[in-house]
Design a protein around this nucleic acid. Structure first.
Lengths: 204, 204, 204, 204
DNA sequence: CATGAATGAGTCTTCATTCAT
DNA sequence: CATGAATGAAGACTCATTCAT
């Protein structure tokens, strides 16, 4: 029993440390960029010995890749409950889009890392991240296709171009928001974005 | 006479070397990222001794900053002749937007550096680059405003959101195009983008 | 117990390496000058990897500054036991002066670095070194003042000029001794110096 | 004739440039130290193309060595007229000593280079400088010996130790004067130094 | 003599990563 | 699992010096 308890405690502690490291990494990567952040710094901020990072992550690359993965997971968990299964595809698109803005607003560090570091970086070609991004993008494409089939969006709308506009717009808006000091309400601007795009997508 | 010729030859040679370095840098920065590219590599690709880089650029930062500046210059020179002064603002917007896609298509290296490295990076906060980018973005904003005033675009269109969609869409489309091996016609996709956005912008 | 022993061993090893580096630096700085000595050379002589130097010293400057500091400490520890507290100020002056010569004789490397590199260099303006030097010089001044008050040294003796003569004489004598191959007995010459100066200082 | 005139003009110009370079070097060496000064900087201050330095000096070492030599020459020319041939050796010693202080006061740059850079540096072992310094020092020794023979200075005075005190005192005083911002009258302090030393040298 | 341009050899410094304990 | 210490490999940058003209 004792050893079982100890084990659990240890596992808990392990998870905590892992989180500490990931969170420190996210913060620092966002602030100074991935290449501008040394593992020594990550360790310092995470209050963990440098070499302990290697107990949780294979190497720096693995750590970098885990940052978006964990956040994508969290984003999904936030989005899922809000989606009314079988509901209007456009409404679902709207929810997904805006929830993402909300998530960025709540986790600007991650926004910074993802939109200014990971996504643009060649790492997006990195299978693990690419898969997550593709999966996310694919969802947009599918909902757009559904909306076309449902007759809400026009027949000749290119679902991929449409998705590019949604993701690109989000990326640009977020980048500007971050670079200029988060002076306005990101989610509100996100709504404007969605409306404008929606106007361009609908059947007349 | 002779010395004049010599001088010209020398100046020509200098310009050439500078171009070689700049071009090597653009290429490598796009391929491996700015931080992932060492000046040693730049020198090797440019077929110039490492220390010669310092004859033309103050330091690495200066080299990095010169990449977008030079290309912005070139982009302007390509765009300007195409613009019919006093013409329809929407048509001008279209030309500027598509010329940019054409330029990227012709200079994918630069597209890579700019859209995947410089623009998203904190460097966009770098005065010199920021100025160039702002100037470019402002042009979009102004034309959109003109189109609103002319009644072509709807009154309640947020010109900045609209610009974000145009630039973000371009960025995303380019990134995907680059990351997935330039398999399709970028300019054509750019046209689709413009049409879709235009549809969302117009007055009904 | 075991871990205690291990810790001590580790600490011992660390101290040793630090000493090795410091000693190599002292030697090389004296031989080739500070600027003429590369950290690569220091590492080689200390038989330590170059990057390990940075485990013990912040940077080259810190290493340079640690050379005089450590030796001043050692010099103090040699001098202190010899001073009879409350004794004759002139006798104390004599002891301090001659102990320094003895220390130089025993550690010519340090003499070289200190008198030919650090003291004359602008580094003497470096707060850390300046403080140590000032403290040392001040001692001379105070003892001279005491001797004046005691009536041993003449009323109109400028204590600072007197100190300059003592320190300058030591510096010059040491430099010559070093540059000309340590051919004579430094301490003996030091005694001559002291006597001559003393003659110039006393009340008649 | 014409060519002769041209030649002379050229020679004059050459001498000027040489002086410019030497003067710039003296200034910069004094300010930043010899190793801290690059030839590029010397060229910039001397307003001469970098490569022209090599038309006048074999290499940096040669330039460094020429700095004290030229100044020793100038110092001699200042001192010589003041010396009454065949006069009292002590008086001559005094004149030489004080003229040197005056020269330093008038040319603090040189003082800095010589006392803080060249003299203490290993360069003093450099034959050319060593010779000049030795010659200068020898003069002191000879005058001191004369004073001993004349019965002014005591029989058992070690002329070399006496000289060390004079030169060392001058060096130390100058260094302090320079490092602490030349706050007091150097020549006046020099007089105090001489008097004190003289007191220690004389026969009783 | 004059000089702009070029360059090779080095310097300090950083950092991801390993390993013994 | 934990961790302090160690290190190899590399990077940005400098500078004395050369050379073609």
């Amino acid at each position: 029993m004792a050893s079982g308890t100890t084990l659990k405690l240890k596992q808990q502690r392990s998870r905590d440390r892992r989180e500490q490291i990931l969170s420190a990494a996210t913060k620092l990567f966002g602030q100074r960029g991935i290449d501008g952040t040394s593992l020594t710094e990550v360790a310092a901020v995470a209050k963990v010995p440098l070499s302990s990072i290697y107990d949780y992550f294979e190497d720096k690359r693995a750590l970098v890749l885990d940052v978006p993965e964990g956040n994508f997971e969290a984003l999904y968990q936030k989005t899922e409950p809000l989606l009314v299964k079988g509901g209007d595809p456009v409404e679902q698109l709207r929810i997904i889009f805006l929830t993402n803005f909300q998530y960025i607003k709540d986790n600007p560090s991650w926004g910074r890392v993802f939109f200014l570091e990971i996504w643009p970086s060649v790492l997006a070609a990195e299978p693990r991240v690419k898969k997550a991004v593709d999966k996310y993008a694919l969802r947009y494409v599918q909902l757009i296709k559904q909306a076309i089939r449902a007759g809400t969006y026009r027949r000749n709308l290119d679902p991929y171009a449409a998705m590019s506009l949604m993701m690109g717009g989000m990326c640009h808006l977020t980048a500007v928001w971050l670079l200029y000091g988060r002076k306005y309400d990101l989610v509100k601007k996100g709504k404007t974005l969605f409306t404008t795009l929606h106007n361009g997508f609908v059947q007349r």
